[in-house]
Design a protein around this nucleic acid. Sequence first.
DNA 1: GTGAAGGGCCAC
DNA 2: AAACGTGGCCCTTCAC
Length: 591
Amino acid sequence: MEVYFQIVRDAAGLSKACEELATAPYLGFDTETTELDPRRGDIRLVQFSTGKNTFVIDLLPFRAGGDLKANPDLAPLRELLSAARPVKIAHNAKFDAKWVRHHLGCELGGIFDTFLASQIIAAGDPDRRHSLADAAQVFISTELDKSEQVSDWSAAELSQSQVEYAARDAAILIPLHEVMAERLRNDGLERVAALEFDCVMPIAEMELAGIYLDKARWREHLATVTAAQGRVADELQEMLAGGVAQASLFGRPEINLDSQPQVLAALRNLGVPVQDTTQAWQLQPLSEGYPVIGKLLEYRGTQKSITSFGENILEFIEPSTGRIHADFRQIGAPTGRFSCSNPNLQQIPHDQKYRRCFRAPDGKKLVIADYSQIELRILAEFSGDKNFIEAFRSGQDFHSTTAERVFGVKPEDVTAEQRSFAKRLNFGIVYGVGASRFGLMTGLSQSDAENTMRRYFGAFGALDSYLRESGNSVIADRAARTASGRLLRLRFDETDRAKTGAARRYGVNMPIQGTSADILKRALRLLHDSFQGTSAKLVNIVHDEIVVECDAADAEDTCARLQGAMKAAAEEFIEKVPVKVDAAIADEWAK
DNA sequence: GTGAAGGGCCAC
DNA sequence: AAACGTGGCCCTTCAC
């Protein structure tokens, strides 16, 4: 692919280029950087393409005066980048947005992200890849050579091949966008695309901000867990060896407590009636009759703490900021949920001993807010179930209120056990729980579990019919959608009952889980706008929870903005059911 | 030695 | 007849 391009190396050229570029409705936009982490390297090139004309801006000459941020010659560039128009088409715009924010000191406004668009259009197809080369192949049948991507972008003189590559990557985005925009329109995906694109900048800033973890506190807690784990391991080793007849000269042969087959064999040796799996929920019922099971579960718990939530997390602390800058994948799941890695800040144990280590630095506060029962409220909205909605409108404890209906008792007569059954059913139905699993987790017999579920669906008739109809349409259409229009296409073998059942549960759950994700993403944008010019910074998000850090003096104001934005976002999707946001100002990530 | 797969478990 | 949805991380095992 031949691309006509001009190289810009001085203030006059930049100003002229930006003038021309500003008149285009859409610009292909890309950057070339010397590293992957904006804290470790420099931006070398910024490329823009109108489709007809492409400009490759070399920032090296502009660095002569020192910091790029302070260079007034770059004002036209900053203006072009931060403006809502022209729309900047970028592949994985979060990456470029972070570099622009960190090195040029401005936001990236007006984003069309071809990486996110590719995922939205793929609608959950696990076989589709979403690199620029893959997208070019799929949407415009163009082969892209990405070999220059990892070349040396710090060289004083860039090669012809490098510059051509840079120009081409920006130019290709114009035809790619045209085809993708058409697909988004035809598939009814424009609203969800806008939702996603609006979310890029908030996430870029959150990753740059990072979250503070108190190293000393973490190590202190880790020491107590490690000590406890040593004792538990010894005791478990002892108990498991009980059935072994021979002891070697070197003492008992130790078994590897982390090895599933070895532990299983030892348990069988002791006469414990274990199945071929040792999952906690299957072992739990055995722990009463066999103390060794209780010990094994205790060992597993502490082992998990040490391996997944131990010293390794401290290695993610970035020396230059003293904070953890995790990677958030905006469309981490086909439902639209985020995923997070390096480390995964969405799976830190709820236990205060862990969470309190994530704290506000001195002079700062954390503001923590989460949606109360958001998935059940979405279910109430979708089903329109009068009694379900009324249970939320009453403002009373939701699980108790459902227990009243299920067991036909007065509010004051709901027992703790009845509330617990109702609570577990309320959570279970979102995932499509069946009577046998419900029985297993409550200790009810199969027939009692079936009875309880019958009473539940009897009390919430519209909910029952919604779930059935939703399941039927999922199977008939082989697709499901969230409130924003996010699409999931399902592939399953309809002659396989198990696979069809799994597809049905997945498809029924997706609009609920996915609408929750839609709401959170909308909230992130509203928040980002509301926080402009304040000290508040997004530092973590966990599906229905948002954690913000701000100056201590601004905490009350930040809390009000956070709660307001989250409520407003949810109300764009939920009309019949009240939305509740619980918020708190704290020194630690714990309430 | 390395990487994929499977089991297990943390979060929502 | 089947058995609760989404993710990431750690471990062991096993194939190459």
